[in-house]
């Protein structure tokens, strides 16, 4: 495992860095000036609803499509100018697995392995066998792919990314079509790869998946990168807030503003208003705020300090419901 011994070294610097990366299809902007920074050694979750530009970004990272503007650097090298040097060090699963249905699983992997000029022929069979074992497909190695289930194809796709030790794995929706058992297996596989020092870049539209696997995440919405950082940082950023129920909305707003917060009415019901205010950088203790409110003559029906959940943050950033981003 070439990647294993040098993990510490890799942790420095960025595995992926984009600057103002933009992709336009005609007049539509699919990806809008994103600055993505994926540290080496991270398991990086790339979150966003379907159609938010995740796959388009990944295609640009891998040199499949050209950026309309902006620049990309992968493993310290400019893409796509140094594509032939970068890609052998990257394993990828892009927009679902794709194989020759008339070839067996193993033959498919061998075929794709020949496309990599740096893949040694001598060890090809052994490596294919190893990769199939790693994703639990050894039993179906000689079965034709058209007889594979969606989950098996997904595993085969991951196996293809693992044919050689890689410095970076780009996995686009790796758990698609997998049963809960398969999903758990992928999760633990990603963890073990990360432990070997591989940077893993996982895209997903499922928050839970990212929360369970990743150390870092970025959130895409309608082509824009709306947040990124470590999971802990994402949870924190300005999210802790005061949640107040009161019939004296105007008074509450006045008091909270005096405290240096930025309150806002969440409902318009005059008799029973909800006022929220992010705590932000202020260091007010909850009891101090309540004291100030009471002193200001505000009647309190309910008071809470809300700790942020990533879910909420995600929904706030990307919108709710089934509105697939355009």
């Amino acid at each position: 495992m070439t990647g294993a011994g040098t993990g510490a070294h890799q942790a420095q610097g960025l595995a992926i860095e984009t600057r103002a990366l933009t992709k336009k299809f005609g007049s539509q902007t699919a990806v809008n000036g994103i600055h993505l920074r994926v540290p080496r050694g991270a398991v990086f979750g790339f979150l966003g609803p379907n159609g938010s530009g995740k796959t388009t970004s990944i295609r640009m990272l891998l040199g499949l499509t050209q950026a309309s503007s902006g620049s990309i650097s992968v493993l310290g090298q400019s893409m796509p100018t140094r594509l032939s040097e970068v890609l052998p060090r990257v394993g990828a699963l892009v927009e679902g697995p794709a194989f020759y249905p008339f070839l067996s699983g193993a033959a498919n992997l061998r075929r794709l392995d020949t496309a990599d000029p740096f893949a040694p022929r001598r060890t090809r069979r052994a490596r294919v066998q190893g990769a199939l074992e790693r994703v639990g497909l050894s039993h179906a190695a000689e079965k034709k792919v058209h007889a594979y289930s969606l989950g098996m194809k997904q595993r085969l796709g991951i196996a293809n990314a693992l044919l050689l030790p890689r410095e970076l794995l780009v996995l686009d929706e790796p758990t698609n079509g997998l049963d809960p058992q398969g999903t758990r297996e992928v999760r633990s596989l990603v963890r073990s790869l990360a432990a070997e020092g591989t940077t893993v870049f996982v895209s997903s539209h499922l928050l839970a998946e990212v929360e369970q696997m990743c150390t870092h995440a970025a959130v895409m919405s309608v082509g824009s990168l709306v947040a990124q950082g470590t999971l802990a940082a994402l949870r924190q950023v300005g999210e802790t807030r005061v949640h107040l129920r009161t019939p004296d909305a105007a008074g509450a707003l006045r008091v909270l503003t005096r405290l240096g917060l930025e309150p806002a009415r969440a409902t318009n019901d005059a008799a029973d208003a909800v006022v929220v205010a992010p705590l932000g950088d202020t260091n007010w203790q909850p009891e101090a705020i309540v004291t100030a409110l009471v002193a200001g003559g505000v009647r309190i029906r309910g008071f809470a300090i809300e700790e942020p959940s990533l879910e909420e943050r995600f929904v706030a950033l990307t919108g709710e419901g089934f509105d697939v981003a355009q």
Binding site: L62, L64, P88, D116
Partner: peptide, 13 residues
């Protein structure tokens, strides 16, 4: 088949 993208990221060139 979709295999084109996998050949190109292999990278086949």
């Amino acid at each position: 088949l979709g295999t084109l993208r996998y050949l190109l990221v292999a990278p086949a060139g």
